[in-house]
Every structure is written in structure tokens, then in C-alpha cells.
Design a protein around this nucleic acid. Structure first.
Length: 362
DNA sequence: AAGCCGGGGCG
DNA sequence: CGCCCAGGCTT
């Protein structure tokens, strides 16, 4: 560690970085104040999600659930609806569970103790450091992808940042260089720099406030750092899905299991189609009958929907059908068109609904 | 350590 | 269109 940091002028680096942040930081809703609950919600939303996407979700979420008590007491279905479209839905289930814990065990006050806060559901080393430093000014590292990118360039660290072990290396390094008198601005400055200047491709080194401290820039290596191993390609699946209505225009929908992909979200009934001998239509009709006791003759809808996840691809063929009855308790629920809006659907099934509505009009 | 878990932006 | 971005949990 001494080796890695030996070239860095720590105090000057801190000053240049923090000075830049205080002048150039973006105005963002979660920066209005340092309410720990607001900071926490924003950090969870910002995991794997860009700022522009998060802003409207954050505003809506804070309006509906303005404090820990409100979220703790909220109906889970309503909370899922507020997260609809953001992805990684376990984030919000864990958040609500953790906030309930804060509500009950900490009298609604987010603990200002990294160890205690870090034990809460969904709070890993990054979220722990971000919330503790930003909300309570506690000098805890908050190592996210931005920070690893920035610091790999500043310190010329060439370890593979995809490896869990490398995150610990950065954590140790940041613990040494973090500004003890202003860890909040220091951590935010590193992330802001990664977002605005020290970007993944073609970083704006000429505008960089810490260029003079950057060993990668000095050696012309800013474009080859950080080193990151590639992930594998997605698997492709063929699915058949059915928008089923009854004679009164109600819809039959299904709630996904509480674990696994898109847990607890709602969907149009569907199955993976694998048969070599049956048509997709026949295979889906058979599935609907066996799984839900739903008898129907399906009609194909033109066009197939592709939805790409990080680890798999769905190719969905869409059908419509009329169903009047289904087995009670089998999981198929009948809702009105009006009620559809209250249920949280993943984007893939929002696409299905949209295609159905488009075709219905014609 | 490796795989699972969504979605969107960019060149 | 293929490429990239990325924390926490589970196994």
C-alpha cells in the first residue's frame, strides 16, 4: 500500500478534488439536504442506474414515502409500483425490510454507526460508506465503479476491477487518502469526477482538476485503465406469452414467484417454448390449460418482442385469447383494465401490453 | 470466486 | 446494432 500511494501528494489531491466538487457539482434532488433516509434511498436507486433515470423515480418515491415510517408502513405492492421499470427489484424489497428494521429497532433514526448500518439488508460496503460519509460525515470509503475507475488511473492500479479482491484494494487505498475533515465532499467528488470528467471512454483529461496527480495521464494510459475482464454472452430463450381477456374485457395476469428473476412482479401468462414437434401456439395453449386450467384458442400477434437482460435474452412471441374461467388458486388473477395500472410489470411485459394495445386499435 | 439480478445509453 | 455501465446476495 505504501508503494501504491507513495507518489500521491495527499493534501493537495484532496484540496484540488474537493475544491472542484464544491464549484462544479450538479444540482440534484438528493443533494438538497443530508437527511440520511433521503441519501440512503438515492444511493440504493443509483446502484447500477444512471442519474437521469433515477431523478423522476426519486422525486416520486420521496413524495409517496417521505420518511422511514412512511416506507415501513407502506403496502409492498405500492412500493413495487414505485420501483416499476428501475430494475434489480430486490433492491427495493431489501430497502423496505431494512427501513422497517430502522423503524422498529432504531426508533426510526438511521444509525450513525457503519457497523450497525452495514448489517441492514441490502447495505453492502459501498452503500454503507456512501450513506455514512454523505449523511453523517463519517470517513468511510465508498468504492463504486466510478471510484475504482478514477483511482485506478490516479494511482496506476492495473488489477482487474471485476475481481472482488480488487475492490478491497481500493477500499484500503481510499481509507488512506480520504479527507478526514470532509469525507462527504471527498467521496462525492470522486464519484462526480468519474461521472463528469474521468469517464469510462475518452475521459476529459484536459478539464480534469486532478490531472497533475494522475499517473495514468502522465504515462498516457488513461484509455487502457481500468483493466476489466469481460463478462460472458447472454443465453437466448424463446418464450410464448398470452394476453388473455374475458368477454367483459378483463385481463388475466400472473404474479411471479417471490424469488428469482423479476421476483414478485406481475406478468402476462407465458412459458418457455422448447418443443421441436409442436407449434408455439399449441405449446402455450397446453401450458395455459395445465398450469391454470385456462382453455383457449390463441391468435398470434404480428411481431416478436425481444428483451435483453444482463445475462439472458427473451424472444417473446405474443398471442391473444379469450378465457372465461381458470382454476381457483392456480395463480391466474382477473383484473379490470383500470386495475392494471396499480400492478408493477417489468419492462418486457410493459412492451407486451403496449404491442397488444397497438394491435387492438387497428 | 462465479453467477444471478434489469434496464438504458452510446458510438 | 453490439457495445458499455454496475452493488449486493447466493452458491
Amino acid at each position: 500500500m505504501k508503494n501504491i500511494l507513495s507518489k500521491l501528494k495527499k493534501e493537495e489531491f484532496q484540496q484540488d478534488l474537493i475544491g472542484w466538487f464544491q464549484k462544479e457539482q450538479r444540482i440534484l434532488p438528493w443533494r438538497e439536504n443530508s437527511d440520511p433516509y433521503r441519501v440512503w434511498v438515492s444511493e440504493v436507486m443509483l446502484q447500477q442506474t444512471r442519474v437521469d433515470t433515477v431523478i423522476p423515480y426519486f422525486l416520486n418515491f420521496m413524495e409517496k414515502f417521505p420518511n422511514p415510517a412512511a416506507l415501513a408502513n407502506a403496502d409492498e405492492e405500492q412500493v413495487m409500483k414505485a420501483w416499476e421499470g428501475l430494475g434489480y427489484y430486490s433492491r427495493v424489497r431489501n430497502l423496505q425490510a431494512a427501513v422497517r428494521e430502522v423503524h422498529e429497532s432504531y426508533d426510526g433514526v438511521v444509525p450513525a454507526d457503519p457497523d450497525k448500518f452495514g448489517e441492514l439488508k441490502g447495505v453492502g460496503p459501498y452503500t454503507k460508506g456512501a450513506v455514512m460519509s454523505i449523511a453523517y460525515n463519517i470517513p468511510e470509503p465508498a468504492v463504486d465503479g466510478n471510484v475504482m475507475r478514477v483511482m485506478s488511473r490516479i494511482l496506476l492500479i492495473e488489477e482487474d476491477i471485476a475481481k472482488p479482491k480488487t475492490r478491497k484494494l481500493f477500499d484500503t487505498a481510499i481509507r488512506e487518502v480520504i479527507a478526514k475533515d470532509n469525507p462527504s465532499d471527498f467521496n462525492q467528488a470522486l464519484m462526480e469526477l468519474g461521472a463528469l470528467i474521468c469517464t469510462p471512454t475518452s475521459p476529459s483529461c484536459l478539464l480534469c482538476p486532478v490531472r497533475e496527480h494522475c499517473q495514468a495521464f502522465e504515462q498516457g494510459k488513461q484509455n487502457v485503465l481500468p483493466v476489466k475482464s469481460k463478462k460472458k454472452k447472454q443465453k437466448s430463450l424463446l418464450l410464448g406469452a398470452a394476453v388473455l381477456t374475458d368477454s367483459e374485457g378483463n385481463f388475466w395476469i400472473h404474479k411471479r414467484p417471490s424469488e428469482g428473476l423479476l421476483a414478485n412482479l406481475w406478468e402476462f401468462p407465458n412459458c418457455e417454448t422448447v418443443s421441436e414437434t409442436m407449434t408455439q401456439k399449441a405449446e402455450l395453449e397446453l401450458f395455459l390449460n395445465k398450469a391454470y386450467g385456462a382453455l383457449t384458442e390463441l391468435t398470434p400477434i404480428e411481431g416478436i418482442i425481444q428483451h435483453v437482460f444482463s445475462h439472458l435474452i427473451w424472444n417473446i412471441t405474443l398471442f391473444t385469447g379469450k378465457v372465461e374461467r381458470a382454476d381457483a388458486g392456480a395463480g391466474l388473477v382477473k383484473v379490470t383494465e383500470e386495475e392494471m395500472r396499480a400492478y408493477a410489470f417489468p419492462v418486457s411485459h410493459q412492451k407486451i401490453y403496449q404491442l397488444f394495445l397497438d394491435k387492438e386499435k387497428n
